[in-house]
Simulated assay, not measured.
Amino acid sequence: MSVSKFLSISEVSQITSFTPHTLRYYEKVGILSKPERAHGKDRKYSEKELRQLKVLKTLKEIGMSLDDIKGFFLEGCILEKIESGENFKPPLNKRIRILGTHLVNLEQKKKDLEAMIKLTKAKLKEYETLLGTE
């Protein structure tokens, strides 16, 4: 979505499905950069914040912790670094490490879940067998 104007917190909330409270919380804990303010009061969100929120939503959907998400965003926007000619490789490498670690954790959770499914199926079969012998 291209934003030609600044958006209010309620408009951003509708677009992103994050509540205004959640948006303020992410700003407070340093996950979301502080948006500009109109007249020093009302938040004014730009396309940059919307892009950041889209990535944040994806990271939350894959189950990443808020601490890891904060680390992911700590060094700013990679696209801005590329556009400005800054060295983007260190923050990009950091993001790769964070995602790699998260993937390893997800793979372990998958193995644990598969083991629980196998155990549950075995227990279910055992119970069904007991019912069939009555």
Rank of each mutant, 00 (worst) to 15 (best):
M1T: 04
M1P: 08
I9L: 05
S10K: 06
S13L: 03
Q14Y: 05
Q14R: 11
T16F: 01
S17F: 12
F18E: 01
T19G: 06
P20K: 07
T22A: 09
L23Q: 01
R24N: 03
R24D: 02
R24K: 09
Y26E: 02
Y26S: 00
Y26C: 02
E27W: 00
K28S: 12
K28T: 01
G30H: 04
G30R: 07
G30Q: 03
P35V: 02
E36V: 03
A38W: 02
K44T: 07
K44Q: 11
Y45R: 02
S46G: 07
E47R: 07
K48T: 07
E49C: 04
L50R: 03
L50D: 02
Q52Y: 01
K54H: 13
V55K: 05
V55W: 05
V55C: 01
L56P: 00
K57C: 08
L59R: 02
L59N: 03
L59I: 07
K60V: 01
E61T: 10
E61I: 09
G63F: 03
G63N: 06
M64C: 04
L66F: 07
D68N: 12
D68F: 12
K70L: 04
F73Y: 06
F73C: 04
L74D: 15
G76W: 05
I78G: 05
L79Y: 09
E80G: 06
E80T: 13
I82F: 06
S84E: 11
G85T: 09
N87F: 06
N87E: 10
N87G: 03
F88D: 05
F88L: 00
K89E: 13
P90Y: 03
P90D: 04
P90H: 04
K94D: 13
K94Y: 08
K94P: 14
R95F: 05
I96V: 15
R97G: 14
G100Y: 13
T101Q: 10
T101N: 13
H102Y: 11
H102T: 06
L103C: 12
L103I: 15
L103T: 12
V104P: 02
V104D: 13
E107V: 07
D112W: 15
L113T: 13
E114P: 09
E114I: 15
A115Q: 14
I117S: 09
L119E: 14
K121G: 09
K121Q: 13
A122T: 15
L124V: 13
K125G: 11
K125H: 11
Y127W: 08
E128D: 13
T129R: 08
L130R: 14
L130H: 13
L131I: 14
L131M: 14
E134Y: 14
